[in-house]
Every structure is written in C-alpha cells, then in structure tokens.
Design a protein around this nucleic acid. Structure first.
Length: 558
RNA sequence: GUGCCUGUAGCUCAGUUGGAUAGAGCAUCGGACUUCUAAUCCGAGUGUCGGGGGUUCGAAUCCCUCCAGGCACGCCA
C-alpha cells in the first residue's frame, strides 16, 4: 500500500469509529455506512483530504449535513493519522489538514525503490493481453497506427507497473482478400517494372513502397517469376513481400520504442484447423445457419448487436470475422484473464459482435475490453494533410519519427484521451521551443541531472539528510506531487487511460520548476543542500519513471 | 434513417465512481538571468461548459430532447 493510500485508510477507519461512537450515544441514526470518498480537493485551502460522507448520510439520518459533519469531527481521533486539523466546510464537507511529517518519509522511499517506484500489486496474478496496431501487412504504418502504437504500448507499460502480467501482441492479417489484392498489385508492378504492359488492379495498392519492393525482387532474382503460372507467381511474390513488410513494420515500431512479445499470424488459425473447429462448435450450439449459400453467425442473439454476420462466404472461404472468433477463443484458451484490443473508432461496429462471439465460444465477454481511439488528423503549416492508404498518399510512422523524433511523437499521441479526435500538428511537434510540451518535462529532468552532477554528493542522499529542513511551500508541494505517483498509476491503469500520466508528468515538472526558481539547491548551508538534493533526486526518479512508462526518453542534458 | 464518439477560454485540450469559486498549455500583455541550464519562473484578463428540460443537498459529469461535427452500418478488414 502506498503512503497516500495508507493515510486515507487510517482516516477512513477513524471516521467509521467516530460514526459508531455517535450511533452508540444515540446522536446519529443509520444502517449501513455509505460508500464515501476520501479525495484530494481541487482547492489547496480545502485541506489535504476532503470527505463527503455527511452529505451522503443526510437523508437517512434526517439531519443537516453540516451537523453530521460536526458530530464526526467531534469524535474523530487524530492519533496515528497525521491529521492536525479538521474543519467543516461548504455544504458539509469534512476537510482534513495533515502535518507534513508524513511527507518526509516519501523521499527515502523513492530513492530506495528507484526504478520500481510507482508500482503496485493491484493486478497481481492477473494475466492480461494487450493487442494493438495489428495493421494489415500490405503497407507501411500510418498515423492512425502510430497513435495505436503509442497508446497500446503505454497502456501495457502502465498495466505492468500496476502489477499485471502483461503480454503485448501483434496480429498479422497475412491471408484473405487484402492479401490477394496485394498479390495482384505486386504482380502488376512486377510486369510494369520489367517493361511490360500490365493493367493495375482496380482495388490495388498504389503506394510507392510496393514498387520499391518489386524492384528489390527484380534486383535479386530478375525475371525469374515472369514465366510461372499466375497463382504460383503471386504466391511467391506475396511470400517475399510479406516478409519484407512485416520486417519494415517491426523496424518502424522498434524505432518508435515499441517491442512486442508475440507476433501472431492469422494463417496459423487456418492451417491448424482452428477456424473450422470453432465453426463446427458453433454449429452444434445452433449459432450458425445457412442462408443464400453462406454461413451466418447469429450475432443478433447476443447483446446489442442487431445483425447477423457472415462467417463463411458462399464461395467457401471464411471471412476475417471467422478468423477473429478463432483468434479470440485462442487468446482465452491461452489463459488470459483479461484481453484488451485497441482499435480505431472506424471498427466500433465490430465490438458488439466480437463480444457476442466471445460469449458464444464459452468465455465471459466482460473479460474482453475494446479500447476505441478516434482518428488522427495531420496538420502542417496550418492545413490538413489528406491521407489515403489506397492511393499511397500518407505519412508513415517511419517518416514521422524521422521528422519530429520519437519522444515528441509519443508524447503527443499519449497526451490526449483516446476518445477525442487528435489533431497532430507536425510543425509544433518538431519545434524545439517552449511551445512544445514534451521539452518542458524533459527539461526538468535534464536540469535535475545537471544539479546532481555538480553537487559533489553521493546518491542516494535523502535517508542521511534532515528532511524536516524542507519547509518552503514549493518544497512541500513538490513532495506531495511525488507521493501521488502510485495512486496516479493505479487509477490510470484501472481506467485504461495513460493520458493521465502525461498530465501528471507535466504537473510534476511544473512543481519542480517552481521549486527550482524559489529554492537554491546548491547552497552554502550543507544540511539544507543535502535535503534539497534528496528532493531533487526523488523528483528525477519519479519523472524518469513516468516518462519511461510513456515511452519518452529522460535526457540528462539538453 | 439507426448506432457509437465528440462539442468546455481566441486555439489545442484536462476535468478523478456527481462535490465546494470549472482548470492547464499555447497565444496576448507586464515583470525576473554578475546566482545550480531563461527550453524556466512570477503576475494579469478571458467562459450562456453546444441549446433546452429533468433527476438532487449539489450536474461539465447522470436521464430525456434538439442542434452541429466525425465515424460505422458489405458474402471488405
């Protein structure tokens, strides 16, 4: 349990004791204690913690909330709680003011836990899988994939920090219609690049990357495929190009700081018979029926989905949805307690039937969470950059990283709630100025490192310093912020919202900059210097840990 | 037409299971470097929280309705 959680828990216990004491004396009537909140008030002068229980009990106790609050405050035993003042305020809040003693325990703890600081065991023994990006391997990664990568990776890091056992997975759609299309496109380019007339398929992939791939094949193997049977030729071209694309995707993600535990190929589900198996299984449960030559899954039986879905086309080939059912069954068969998919919002219509399918194959659909993220609009010079994958007009992840850098890109993507449409300003992201929020945070870290190396003191230092010398408001505010990290992480993990951490990082940096401008660290007062170095070092550790979760580097100099 | 997401300061966005006087950054204006990194700090102004109704001690948050924008409604993925 974190220091802050511990403080809250002690206060909670004493509040309940105070309630019981009042009840025993007949001053207060109630049945169950309502589920009340101990929260950090928005206003600093409302104390360290505020409790809303009096308002919640008002109706049942048939009393004015302020009166109830007063009864609780009267019986509240401060011993062992760090509380030094209790006040009744507003409509009936009980505000608790703490002495700063507890704050001084935070710094040595942070230095001791070091890179582990902020972690918790909230997700202990829970196996969770995060599947993200899973882009079609027929092209390169675009801005939408980049957002998914930044979000998914931060989420996975966050869950791991909160104690979950996390597996990151990329699902490769290496079969199906789009792959056939890919083959036709490759074939057409192959002929064209060798100087032959060849019609380009109507729904083909126009990207230049396809031409580049074909030219590499020609460079290596020349005209070897010209005389093959068409099927054979396409298959060979696909095999080579697919490997190349997957490698390119993996490299681009690697440059973006994203590494996966598992790369899962859709073809394994076809080859192993898993898809046929799951279809048979569903037939036995009468969840599949035939209509106009195709096989349909009764998704309308489940949840809010109102339409059935084709799983096997009338030509006998399974749809992507059939593979997806088998894939999700496979995930749960592997023992994951919680399966998280990150999808673009354009796939939202698929969520209900996917959950229905999970239920149909015998698992609890509540254990599948689909995080939808809205689409990305790219701006350059104040204008929207239009993107289209089909026509090959788009900025790739690789180009993005080259242009604005990994840190800025990841910070920008993870700064916003996945629910909101993201306007990505390329000019802003690559600006090396105060307008760019990522530098604000990194600069705080670099500043600290500079002080620490100039100090001539050995770290860690907080445990051998008199921390009670830290009395300035800026110092106490900063420690308070550092102490919040474990709770921030636990909450962000629970809500699957890594963007909260970006906010936290910014706030923490802000607290540090204020401290820096108010309090000189390398001062002649040796004891004070040591205490402030302890604070600076704990700030460094906290900042670095958060940035690491977000996939942003923490530079030692800038 | 139906479903999902969004609508908060000039701009980009936060807003914690409903909490107190709705907050940041940028932009604008005024201050602070012979001192540990001025990519910083300090100060100043800005709001019918899209409109309207409802629920309650209390609503940006929950419910209804309307308006605006995005997305999805395929034997595509």
């Amino acid at each position: 349990m974190s220091i802050v959680e511990n403080l809250k828990e002690n206060i909670r216990k004493e509040i309940i004791k105070a309630l019981e004491a009042n009840k025993a004396e007949g001053k207060l009537q109630y049945g169950e204690v309502p589920n009340f909140v101990i929260e950090v008030p928005r206003e600093k002068n409302h104390g360290d913690f505020a409790v809303n229980i009096a308002m919640l009990m008002s109706k049942e106790a048939k009393m004015n909330p302020r009166q109830i609050a007063q009864l609780i405050a009267d019986k509240f035993n401060q011993a062992g709680t760090c509380v030094e003042k209790v006040e009744i305020a507003g409509p009936g809040f009980i505000n608790f003011y703490l002495n700063s003693q507890w704050l001084y325990d935070v710094l040595p703890l942070v230095e001791k836990e070091d890179s582990n600081y902020g972690s918790s065991d909230a997700g202990k023994d829970i196996k969770v899988q995060v599947e993200f990006v899973s882009a079609n391997p027929t092209g390169l990664l675009h801005m939408g994939n980049a957002r998914g990568a930044a979000l998914g990776d931060a989420l996975a890091n966050l869950l791991a920090k909160a104690g979950y056992s996390v597996t990151k997975e990329f699902y490769i759609n290496d079969t199906g219609n789009q792959i056939e299309n890919f083959g036709k496109s490759l074939e057409a380019r192959y002929f064209q690049e060798l100087g032959h007339e060849f019609p380009f398929p109507e729904e083909g992939y126009h990207g230049k990357d396809i031409i580049d791939t074909v030219n590499r094949i020609i460079a290596n193997e020349g005209k070897a495929y010209l005389d093959l049977e068409q099927d054979e030729r396409r298959k060979k071209l696909i095999d080579i190009a697919l490997d190349e694309k997957i490698t390119a995707i993996r490299t681009a993600l690697g440059n973006f700081g994203v590494e996966y535990d598992v790369w899962f190929r859709e073809t394994t589900l076809h080859d192993s018979g898993a898809i046929n198996e799951v279809i048979e299984q569903l037939k036995e449960k009468d969840l599949i029926y035939e209509h106009e030559g195709a096989l349909w899954f009764r998704s309308s039986r489940f949840g809010s989905d109102d339409k059935d879905e084709v799983v096997v086309r009338s030509n006998g080939t399974p749809t992507y949805f059939a593979a997806d059912i088998a894939y999700h069954k496979n995930k749960f068969d592997r023992g994951f307690d919680w399966v998280i998919n990150i999808w673009g919002a354009d796939h939202h219509g698929h969520v209900a039937r996917m959950k229905g399918a999970v239920q149909a194959v015998g698992y609890n659909p509540d254990n599948l969470t689909v995080v939808l993220m809205q689409l990305v609009r790219l701006f350059r010079g104040g204008d929207i950059v239009r993107m289209s994958k089909r026509t090959g007009q788009y900025i790739t992840l690789m180009e993005l990283v080259e242009e604005v850098g990994k840190d800025a890109a990841r910070y920008f993507f993870v700064l916003r709630n996945p629910d909101s449409h993201l306007d990505f300003d390329l000019d802003l992201a690559k600006q090396e100025s105060s307008e760019n929020p990522v530098y604000y945070v990194q600069y705080a870290h670099a500043r600290i490192c500079s002080i620490l190396s100039a100090s001539g003191e050995e770290l860690p230092i907080a445990h051998k310093s008199d921390l009670s010398l830290l009395k300035e408001k800026a110092e106490l505010d900063l420690i308070r912020k550092i102490a919040d990290l474990p709770d921030e992480i636990a909450q962000a993990a629970k809500a699957l919202e890594p963007h909260r951490l970006a906010r936290y990082a910014h706030d923490l940096a802000s607290n540090f900059h204020t401290f820096y401008n108010n309090c000189r660290v390398l001062t002649d007062d040796h004891e004070l210097k040591k205490a402030r170095l302890g604070l600076a070092n704990a700030t460094r550790i906290t900042l670095r840990n958060v940035l690491t979760l977000l996939g942003v580097s923490a530079p030692e100099r800038m």
